[in-house]
Design a protein around this nucleic acid. Structure first.
Length: 423
RNA sequence: GGAGGGAUGGCUGAGUGGCUGAAAGCACCUCUUUGCUAAAGAGACGUACCGAUUAUAUCGGUACCGAGGGUUCGAAUCCCUCUCCCUCCGCCA
């Protein structure tokens, strides 16, 4: 959410950003007009209320003195009617303004390169040349099924498409990866959190998933709750509405949760394998930091995610997303992409974003820089560190051997009872 | 699911229609006294929005006592709905 006051002062910042995002530019002017109208209403209401407060006080004084006040009371009653009408006008105006405001994405950072789509994303660095394979690599789902790690058919029976059952070493690998990621992240200063997996509408709205992206979410029947699409949602909302002490920042959190996504716009994409599922597990990283450090904290978060891939010895590259590809909440996003031999290309495995004060403002999350000072919105950051499903897929593909068996990455062996090969 | 009790400022906690944006205490901040610390004394001390302006300071106004709605000239205070917390009973794990 944007700060209306600074927007009034400088709407061009948002207009420029919208143009760069290939987003709705006219909406900004509409918003400013609604805002002006709303302020006019408020001015009128404040003055009416002032009149009423003063008149009511006078009535009280007269009554106390034992005088008659019925004429004054009648006058204030009329004032009250006028006030109610004005309040209704303001309410309408305000809800219209809020509705529009909530659909406008964050302002892009100046360092984000211009471009329409992922074609223009910039390569920042990679882990070096992809190691050659001396046989034709198979797809992860083919290997996973033949080794008895993945079962798509029975998952479809239980639920439907885009679900999978993990069995034997598949299930153990999930647990091993989750523990490995959490251990690494906590060693690097992140506090482990286990949040609820379903949240209410306010939480989804503060995070930025609502009102705009409801079709991407799974709702819950009996209540107005939603299954989380990522642990980012509960983590960024954990301190919603609070005023934090400066000493509490920077705050680093990590959480292992299932994630649920409707994948409404992804029909026909990645239908094979476990790259794109309605349910997957992920270890998430979230930071709440002071504004002046947020961009260096973003670099550190990317390094934290990279560190995991380095330990797993998976080939990857880091991309800086261009303006048109950067998500709704983010001012700046790095994607980390991991190598998939069977596809002969890199695929997204982690997306690390600095959301600046966009989410903090939606959730009224603030901190006090020093005693007595006024409150400031901190910056929130989120990134995957890392998703279990896609990591598992990448591991299977990159660690496959010619005989169809799977080597176990050194870093994971201690989490799998010392196993070195899965066959 | 049944019965009852709660929700007030950073915290504790008064307050059943106007003098309450809110007593009192604690914490925090400033100043005074003291060689330092401790202690004591004095003062300041919520958040948001709007407006004025020598515009991150100051002044004026408005709103906010869990959320929403209602009664009233006027509500923290009365009524209704909801949410959350606590206690007891039942049920499930």
């Amino acid at each position: 959410m944007h700060d209306l006051r600074s927007l009034r002062h400088d709407p061009d910042r948002l207009i420029t950003s919208q143009r760069r995002r290939r987003g709705d530019v006219d909406a900004v002017a509409t918003l400013m007009a609604l805002d002006q109208e709303h302020r006019n209403c408020q001015l009128q209401i404040d003055s009416l209320r002032q009149q009423r407060n003063e008149a009511s006080k006078a009535i009280g004084a007269r009554k106390q003195a034992g005088e008659d006040a019925s004429a004054q009371m009648e006058a204030v009653r009329k004032l009250g009617d006028e006030l109610k009408a004005a309040e209704n006008r303001m309410q309408d105006c305000q809800s219209e303004r809020e509705a529009l405001l909530m659909t406008l994405p964050n302002i892009l950072d100046a360092s984000v390169p211009d471009g329409a789509d992922e074609e223009t994303n910039q390569l920042v660095r990679d882990s070096g040349p992809v190691p050659p394979m001396d046989f034709e690599p198979k797809a992860h789902d083919e290997i996973g099924v033949s080794l008895g790690l993945l079962d798509f058919e029975r998952a479809a029976r239980l639920t439907g498409s885009r679900f999978v059952v993990l069995k034997n070493w598949g299930a153990k690998l999930e647990r091993a990866l989750a523990n490995f990621f959490l251990d690494q992240n906590t060693a690097r200063g992140y506090t482990e959190v286990l949040p609820p997996y379903m949240v209410n509408r306010e939480t989804m709205t503060a995070n930025g998933n609502l009102p705009k992206f409801e079709e991407d979410l799974f709702g819950v029947n009996f209540k107005d709750y939603f299954l989380i699409p990522t642990a980012e949602v509960p983590l960024t909302n954990l301190y919603r509405g609070e005023i934090l002490d400066k000493e509490q920042l920077p705050m680093y959190m990590t959480a292992y949760t299932p994630c649920f996504r409707a994948e409404a716009g992804a029909a026909g994409r990645d239908t094979r394998g476990i790259i794109r599922q309605h349910q997957f597990s992920k270890v998430e990283l979230v930071k709440i930091v002071e504004p002046e450090h947020s961009f260096e904290e973003l670099e550190k978060m990317v390094a934290d995610a990279e560190h995991l891939l380095q330990l797993l010895e998976l080939p990857y590259r880091v991309m800086l997303l261009c303006s048109g590809d950067t998500g709704f909440n983010a001012a700046k996003t790095y994607d980390i992409e991991v190598w998939f031999p069977s596809q002969g290309k890199y695929r997204e495995i982690s997306s690390c974003s600095n959301c600046t004060d966009f989410q903090a403002r939606r959730g009224m999350l603030r901190y006090r820089p020093e005693a007595g000072a006024s409150t400031v919105f901190p910056h929130t950051l989120n990134g995957s560190g890392l998703p279990i499903g896609r990591t598992l897929a990448a591991l299977i593909e990159n660690y496959q051997q010619a005989d169809g068996s799977l080597k176990v990455p050194k870093a994971l062996q201690q989490y799998l009872g010392g196993a070195e090969v899965i066959a």
